[in-house]
């Protein structure tokens, strides 16, 4: 008999105080409590984390890589969003 599937979770770990939680992998668990415990055992065996988030993988909506051009093209032409677009005379010094 085929083994029934157990839900998939994505794991995010804050490695140091002041840093953001960063995606580090995924795991299977039947509920959130077990997912947190499994994340502790699988991803923080050497003190890699101060805090863990687990999120059901099914709750994540991702952009389609095929739409990359359409999604991100609008920002490419807006060079005036960068500080180097603006000219400030040298005499003014660092700004």
């Amino acid at each position: 008999m085929a083994t029934p599937n157990t839900p998939l979770w994505e794991v995010f770990i804050r490695s140091r105080n002041g840093l953001a939680h960063k995606h580090c992998g995924s795991l299977h668990a039947s509920d959130a409590t077990m997912a947190l415990q499994a994340a502790r055992d699988i991803y923080t065996r050497r003190g890699e984390g101060l805090s863990i988030w687990v999120v059901p993988s099914s709750a994540i909506t991702a952009s389609d890589p095929a739409d990359k051009a359409m999604m991100f093209e609008p920002a490419e032409s807006k060079i005036y969003r960068h500080p180097t677009f603006y000219e400030v005379p040298d005499e003014v010094g660092h700004m």
Partner: peptide
Amino acid sequence: AHEEGAWVREAAAAYA
């Protein structure tokens, strides 16, 4: 190991 773990997987799924 897989067979003996079946009840654990089932119990966890039932609890969830």
